[in-house]
Amino acid sequence: MQDLMGKAKNFVAEKVADMEKPEADITDVDLKDVGKEGITYMAKVSIKNPYSASIPICEIHYSLKSANRVIASGKTPDPGSLKGNDTTMVDVGIRVPHSVLVSLIKDIGADWDIDYLLEMGLVVDLPLVGNITIPLSKKGEMKLPSFADLFK
Rank of each mutant, 00 (worst) to 15 (best):
V92T: 09
T40D: 09
P79V: 03
N10R: 14
P56F: 06
K83N: 13
P97R: 15
C58Q: 09
E59Y: 02
S46Q: 08
D125R: 03
I57A: 07
Q2R: 14
P79W: 04
K138M: 06
P56W: 01
T88Q: 14
I57Y: 04
G109F: 07
D107G: 09
V16Q: 05
D28S: 13
I94T: 09
G84Q: 04
T133W: 00
M120A: 14
D149I: 12
K15G: 02
G130I: 03
V70L: 06
N10V: 07
D3P: 03
I55E: 02
N49Y: 02
L122G: 04
S66Y: 06
M19A: 10
L118M: 07
L126H: 00
L136Q: 02
T27Y: 01
G6S: 13
L126V: 00
G6Q: 14
I57D: 02
L82S: 08
V102M: 06
K139F: 10
G109H: 11
V124Y: 01
G74E: 04
K138F: 08
D28F: 08
H61K: 02
K139T: 12
F151K: 15
F151E: 15
V100Y: 11
A13P: 00
V92H: 05
K9D: 08
K48D: 13
G80P: 11
V96L: 10
S146V: 01
D25M: 07
S66E: 08
K83G: 12
E14C: 08
S99A: 10
V70G: 00
H98G: 00
K48N: 11
D18Y: 01
I71L: 06
R95N: 05
I71P: 01
V102R: 15
K32Y: 15
E59A: 08
V92L: 01
D91T: 13
P127G: 10
I57C: 03
A110M: 05
L118V: 06
F151Y: 14
N131R: 14
I132L: 04
K44D: 13
T87W: 04
S99W: 08
I60L: 02
K15F: 02
S63G: 11
D113F: 12
G6F: 12
